[in-house]
Design a protein around this nucleic acid. Sequence first.
DNA 1: ACAATAACTGTACTTTGGTTCAATAGCCGG
DNA 2: CCGGCTATTGAACCAAAGTACAGTTATTGT
Lengths: 205, 205
Amino acid sequence: MNHCFVDRDALPLSTWLEAFPQARVVRRDQLVLLPADEPVVLWVRQRSGEALDAAMPTAALAAWQLLVLLADEPDEEVVADALGRGASGCCNTHAAPEVLQQVALVVGNGGLWVGQSLLRRLVGGTSRALAARSERPPRVDWSTVLSEREVQVARLVAGGASNREVAEQLSITERTVKAHMSAIFEKLGLRDRLQLSLRINGVQV
Amino acid sequence: MNHCFVDRDALPLSTWLEAFPQARVVRRDQLVLLPADEPVVLWVRQRSGEALDAAMPTAALAAWQLLVLLADEPDEEVVADALGRGASGCCNTHAAPEVLQQVALVVGNGGLWVGQSLLRRLVGGTSRALAARSERPPRVDWSTVLSEREVQVARLVAGGASNREVAEQLSITERTVKAHMSAIFEKLGLRDRLQLSLRINGVQV
DNA sequence: ACAATAACTGTACTTTGGTTCAATAGCCGG
DNA sequence: CCGGCTATTGAACCAAAGTACAGTTATTGT
């Protein structure tokens, strides 16, 4: 299976090429120039604020072309719209390489991939859901870098918990939570809890 | 893949251990103390008459933690609710070992197990799923609720920027950034920038 | 036995985040 | 024209986050 990333500019994210070193990267207006004789997954990026029309090709997809939407800001309506236009799936633009490979596996075998969190929204459920889980596995194995306790703290913080809430949850002092946080920042080279959240949830580097 | 059964008491059913002899069994309050360096499926039991809140963990799930609800009395609404809270599936508490293994296979590979009836509904098309969604308490669409400027601030903050960085980026005062943030929190009913990030990045519902 | 690591806590401090009082100015629809 | 919305900013303030320095306890490996 070949892979082709389609973006406004032909500037691939490093994660894309990590996932598929052989992948082609083209601008949107060059999409029609692709060779048409081989099966390919088109990874179409929709940037922040863009309408779906701007990203999705207007031409019909060939039978051997599979399309996955890479959304900078995933949104269930956009996903539903994309699926309605023939896309085989949707995931975050900044998803980790392993996730992209996983998506490719599912899509390549005729499946649909919409990401667990997004699918969950389609299914329904209460709007005030507390569970915060990314459909992406951690980008680096920070579980090996961090100690067991630090990972517990990091998990809670990444889910939106304050230091006090973490302290209550783990039955330790808020001071100790801070100590763990400082160690976490030091080890991972991060600045604050928001960046930690982005890292753990695989949203960003 | 490891398996951990979570119940009010740490008393596993025989079928559970038949399906996964290596499985761990813990009480609900011990959930956060689990080792964090290995992928695991959490089999959370909801006993008869219990609310979902009693069974489901309040803390955020890590990316490598998958959650399957074991319901003593499976109910379609409960299933939808559980999925909305981050579960990867739901089946009967007393399901046969082979069924549990089947569920584990699907869930472990990133799929959702929702049982035949609910699944059939989803296959019916996303449009119907969306229609069903619109009947429930509406989840505010942040990009339409916020003003244009607020959206700009929100995006930068969600990406990890500090107030000062946002101010520089938009050529305004840090004070103004704060004003926008307050308005954003008010409109979206959020507590701080970390929750805003989770909302915007689609990690949280 | 000893070094190293992890977990935990205290006091004190600086920085950042967020709110509460304001206030000024522009735009737009009724 | 005016009421409402938006953008902007100030000063002051409180709360939370994060750092610096210092210390105890337990465990583990050499």
